[in-house]
Computed example of a mutant assay.
Amino acid sequence: MSESDPRNHPWTPYPGPRPAPYRSEPPVPDRPARPLLEPADGWTMLLGTLAVLPVGVIGALVWIGLAPRVPAAVTADHHVSFVGSEPRGFITADITFLAIALAAGVLCGVLAAILGRHRGTAVAVAMAAGGVGASYLMSWLGTWLTGGPAHRWAQHAVPGTHSYFLHLQTQPFLFAWPFVAVLVVLIAVAVTDAR
């Protein structure tokens, strides 16, 4: 190489592109953001909601089996009066309902998070709607199967002392099931996205 070659001069810039100090990988294109809801999510919400409702029937049967009854006396003209510690019996029945609803909510939430882990928003909506429906079904069916509501029970009961029907007094307990189910799904989605 001659001295007149510009590459030999210390102040002459390098004529060609400098080699990279290390081998760089081509940039990976960003994946397009998944929309909040897709058409298939509609089926997920519908089927998920319907799948939860039969659990409400099972919950009602468990509630009937575990909850205490309140003794009630029925007169000949079908008037009802409670015998003994009425409030304690109703409170215990409500707490039993709450415990069953919380357990069912956790169970439904875990199963939904496992089966629908790629459709977090749709599964959360299904658990909210299905949980509310199943909780109302559990309350209504438990009351109906034990002879309620009160006016129907009193009209068909013979005079004497009976075990009063189940009736949920604390209405906010109806929302325990969907709240816990949605919370479990959201926690599962957050853990999955953090990985």
Score class of each variant (00 low, 15 high):
167 H>E: 15
96 T>D: 06
45 M>P: 01
130 G>T: 09
174 L>W: 07
108 C>W: 04
29 P>C: 06
64 I>D: 12
82 F>S: 07
170 T>F: 15
65 G>P: 01
37 L>K: 08
69 R>V: 13
30 D>S: 10
171 Q>N: 13
102 L>G: 05
121 T>C: 03
56 G>M: 09
191 V>S: 02
163 S>E: 11
94 D>M: 02
131 G>I: 07
20 A>K: 13
122 A>F: 02
113 A>P: 02
116 G>M: 12
24 S>C: 03
102 L>Q: 02
195 R>H: 09
43 W>E: 08
93 A>D: 04
182 V>N: 05
119 R>H: 14
42 G>A: 03
45 M>W: 08
105 G>R: 08
138 M>S: 14
21 P>Q: 09
130 G>A: 07
58 I>R: 08
21 P>E: 12
68 P>R: 03
104 A>M: 13
69 R>I: 04
85 S>V: 12
22 Y>N: 06
98 L>I: 11
146 T>I: 04
94 D>R: 04
58 I>W: 12
26 P>M: 09
82 F>P: 01
156 H>V: 10
15 P>T: 05
96 T>F: 05
190 A>C: 00
164 Y>I: 05
60 A>N: 10
65 G>L: 13
11 W>I: 03
174 L>I: 14
127 M>Y: 01
104 A>F: 05
97 F>Q: 01
83 V>I: 14
72 A>V: 14
155 Q>T: 12
3 E>Y: 02
133 G>V: 08
89 G>H: 03
153 W>F: 15
54 P>Q: 07
108 C>G: 00
77 D>H: 05
180 V>I: 15
35 P>L: 04
70 V>C: 00
39 P>M: 05
116 G>T: 13
35 P>W: 12
105 G>N: 04
10 P>A: 07
163 S>R: 10
166 L>D: 04
189 V>H: 06
108 C>A: 12
